[in-house]
Design a protein around this nucleic acid. Structure first.
Lengths: 219, 219
DNA sequence: TTCTTAATCTCGTGG
DNA sequence: CCACGAGGTTAAGAA
């Protein structure tokens, strides 16, 4: 990892063209060859960057970074204030918890959360346009397609609607009803879902996990 | 901007919980108080971060970053290899070209690109669910709603479909046909659009801009 | 390789 | 403050 603090101007030509006027900035060159340029605000997003794989050439204070697609990042250095390099090695990586895949696992294991008598058919039920998160039966033996999101917005309702259209063309399954399950459902998504006869369920992640933990403790 | 290279472990508890095992990394503390943690690969995304506004407290090698929503980032420092601070000032910011807004401008100025006899009604035609990119008339006097994207995907077709549903409820406008215009249209989006009677047009940005450039040269 | 979907998405804009 | 759309989205996973 090479850290450079310098006054520089930057030009990018690729998916769009962009220009950064001359100013002091941080330039990061990482071990994989990637380059990013940061201002002194915002944690997440660099002002400009080039993702790996790419190659960097330095000549007369002009750095040219090119990738395979022919995108170019040109950094014109004016005043280098700091320049240091450090060996970091490969990072062991982030361990996450609480994402959609985990919600799906938890809900599949506790499908009765959706209602009395519910039973799982399968997770990731395959269709021509992609897998439905959960397919299950309700207490009356009817088929239910469940779409799970961390945050339920309009896109998720549209997605579930496409699945339902398709599933209902299959005479073996039809009629299939829809349930939109999320930790948080935005009002507009709820309105759209309700308008289309899709049920909405707010999931309590801690409660679902708590149930799982109780289960685990039994063994 | 403070640059710290250190062996550290990191815990995040907020929208999810996540953990980074001990390893050497770069920790960036920016002037706005934001903190990000980078490994030695990938230009764009930090391993962990806390967006501003947030506050940082250091105590006995443990850094605690908290934001207003109660999200927490805890960095346990083990071996500090480098620690330097630099004044950068406010960045003048990025100047962009080639985005959707520009495409919309160009197409509005050359609406005949869509077909002979086409004429602009207006850009950003307001509806209850948001503005339609372009509303225009075709050669036969029929009304056309145009949705413009840089990359045309299913979401864009859904969006246009919602606009068309709404516009066709207005007896002054109905019947309104749809055109999906993009620099690149994904196959699935094309299939969905065609299935719904929506026309697809691939835009040539350079050609549109070239036409504009020719126009400018006349004055 | 291409395509699809999730993301601690981020970031702007407008009501 | 929320809702919505765009992003050089990025990044991961499947076909």
């Amino acid at each position: 990892m090479r850290l450079v603090i310098a006054r520089c101007s930057v030009d990018y030509a690729g998916r769009l063209t962009a220009h950064l006027p001359s100013a002091p900035r941080l330039i990061l060159v990482k071990a994989d060859g990637s380059v990013s340029i940061h201002a002194d605000d915002r944690a997440y997003k660099p002002l400009n960057w080039m993702s790996p794989p790419c190659t960097l050439k330095e000549a007369d204070g002009v750095w040219t970074v090119v990738n395979k697609a022919g995108e170019k990042l040109i950094i014109t250095m004016e005043e280098v204030v700091h320049d240091s390099s450090h060996e970091l090695g490969v990072d062991p990586g982030l361990i996450k918890d609480g994402v959609e895949a985990h919600l799906q696992e938890l809900l599949a294991d506790r499908i009765e959360t959706l209602g009395t008598g519910y039973s799982l058919i399968r997770r990731e039920y395959p269709t021509a346009i992609g897998p439905v998160d959960i397919l299950c039966r309700d207490g009356d033996g009817g088929t239910i397609a469940v779409e799970i999101k961390r945050r339920g917005e309009i896109d998720g309702v549209e997605q579930l609607t496409r699945y339902l259209d398709l599933l209902n063309r299959d005479p073996h399954l039809s009629p299939v009803k829809g349930v939109f399950a999320a930790q948080e459902i935005k009002p507009q998504a709820r309105v759209l879902a309700t308008d289309r006869g899709i049920g909405c369920v707010v999931l309590d992640y801690d409660a679902l996990r708590g149930i799982e933990d109780d289960k685990l403790r039994l063994f």
